[in-house]
Write a protein that binds this DNA or RNA. Structure first.
Lengths: 331, 331
DNA sequence: AGCCTGTAATAATTCGAATTAGCATCTTGA
DNA sequence: TCAAGATGCTAATTCGAATTATTACAGGCT
């Protein structure tokens, strides 16, 4: 348990004061503080020899930057069930953090009291980081509000409604992406649409449904909303194109339709809205769009940098990419 | 950007001293410090009203511990090419860190000067954490030596040779696992073996080859070592059982043999030694063993805790698990 | 009154680094 | 030769919370 070197130790070894070591380290020339080149070299030599590094904790008490970016997720980051969904975000975050010369702090210590992590607990460590990226399909509104009132710099991945103030975020432009899909389907002759999924709760769900409603209204076509997959109900309503919030629902629908001897997309077109948050069969090449997750991760870190440097409140939506697939055809 | 409340602020509001607030917060009854119930309630009320949370930075400055564990990898953690291999380790690390109430710091800031991260650079931030888990197929010997001489608490995942002193590690018991495979093959009548792979460089390679050599010697059977897959060479030498260091090599060998009309395991048995570090075809159910990666991650964090608390140098090898597969049969 | 014992709270110090104010010492210029 | 100005460095303070040493005061006892 070797004790960590302090500036005081370095100072003693170099025969100078602690203040001098600090001045050398920070290369201060302004403020009337000068260090002779000879002394500077001597101090630097001791530092090089010992591999001394300033204790970031102590430093942070003074500065307002420690080059540590926090990543908060309500669930474990690595476990494999969710990994496929979260991973691209994290890739982007890591990439950009590396570029910015920052380390990433994963808040694994956040007590999972009710099975779910909490940002603010008795002993919240969120302040350890300079700022924080919040990742999760839904975020606790109370937590968001507290982040805002406490002035903790953060950026949410995914658009968020106001929570006692605008929430800085980098999201996916779901309304535009859904609208694009409806446009394409209308161009192929579809006139009766259905949206399958919650369409509320998480902003990402609400945004998709909103895009759907706006799109069908703009085209003057029919669009119904059903929370759950019901093939009979859809066919009974004369629906020819279905948009499913969940990829797994879309895949299930396709399989169910084919089971019944229907052709997809001959008799029914199925469109999926984004990426799978639950495991889904991958043998069905659904038409739909791709969430730019990696790019969102990158942009979130960039946005966080802006928050830290300028105190701004960036809000940005990135475009989704159309995926051709094979489940969209003529009505 | 509301300024953060301090204990001093709380103290003022409650009409007491900062010390009293601290005592109330930490519920100190020992050490001769007493707080009247009435005062305690008053202070707690102010804390409740304001939602005050202690600044963890200041707290960690006083105690020597950060409750931050570092994770160093020479490559990016998340990117998907290596993700399949690293992920289980990280799962285990995260799990155990959560249990220990520690946060994880990923050293993404480490300069990628030559494309590869370095533990020690001009501005190494390795000391940020209380201690550190090192993850990677190979670790720089110089880096390890420096970690030892500087007394930075750490644990390597994977056995490591001495580097100017014993290196604390949690590894997989490759010699035993390879030996077990050879045992099984001998029991099935195999007498001529081949080991395909580098067998040197990384400790993990060397350990496998060593296990192989010891096993064939113990059984008094033939065992040759070839660095690369060469089906003709193997058959020409009369080999009936091949152990491949790389999973992908094993899979390639099986496919090549079947291409040539040979039966696996009828004419040739193929055994793989561990997990795929490169993408490998997954339609070949190779017989071999599984590296307990998740468990290794967990144990590494536990070992790191021991290093931190007792200053010990834990070295431990975990057993690998036999995988039945379908590529081992009678000679 | 004088002394002791508990009790309740506070002043002062600590952690490690950054910063400010200021003290010596040395140069210059008149 | 002496004031003015540079120069080189250090003492002291700051950050926020935890801990120690200490004070203040009440009541009981002789």
């Amino acid at each position: 348990m070797a004790k960590r070197l302090t500036q005081q130790d370095i100072a003693r070894m170099a025969g100078v004061s602690q203040a001098t070591v600090s001045l050398v380290l920070n290369n201060r020339q302004d403020g009337g503080a000068r260090i002779a080149p000879e002394t500077r070299t001597r101090v630097l030599e001791v530092i090089r020899r010992t591999g001394y590094v300033a204790n970031p904790i102590a430093r942070r008490l003074h500065d307002q930057r420690n080059r540590i970016l926090g990543v908060f997720t309500y669930e474990a980051v690595f476990p494999s069930t969710r990994a496929d969904f979260y991973q691209p975000f994290l890739e982007g975050i890591e990439e950009q953090a590396e570029e910015a010369g920052c380390d990433l702090l994963l808040f694994t210590s956040a007590k999972a009291a009710g099975g779910r992590r909490r940002i603010f607990s008795d002993d919240s460590r969120i302040r350890l980081a300079d700022g924080c990226v919040l990742l999760g399909r839904t975020l606790d509104r109370g937590d968001l509000a507290q982040m805002l009132t406490e002035g903790i710099p953060f950026v949410s991945i995914g658009r968020r409604d106001d929570a006692g103030g605008p929430v800085p975020h980098v999201g996916a432009d779901y309304p535009a992406a859904v609208c694009d899909l409806v446009d394409r389907a209308v161009a192929l002759g579809h006139r009766r649409f259905a949206y399958v999924g919650a369409g509320k709760g998480a902003e990402s769900s609400a945004d998709r449904l909103r895009g759907f409603r706006e799109a069908v209204a703009a085209h003057g076509v029919d669009g119904i909303h059903v929370p759950f997959t019901g093939l009979d109900q859809l066919l009974g309503a004369g629906v020819t194109a279905v948009l499913t919030e969940e990829v797994s629902d879309g895949a299930a629908l396709v399989l169910a339709a084919r089971d019944r001897g229907l052709s997809v997309p001959g008799d029914l077109s199925v469109l999926m809205l984004g990426a799978a948050t639950r495991p889904a069969p991958d043998d069905v090449a659904l038409t739909g769009f791709r969430i730019p997750r990696r790019e969102m991760g990158r942009r979130a870190v960039q946005a966080l940098t802006e928050v830290l440097e300028r105190g701004s409140t960036p809000q940005e939506l990135l475009a989704c990419e159309f995926i051709e697939g094979s489940t969209l055809g003529r009505a």
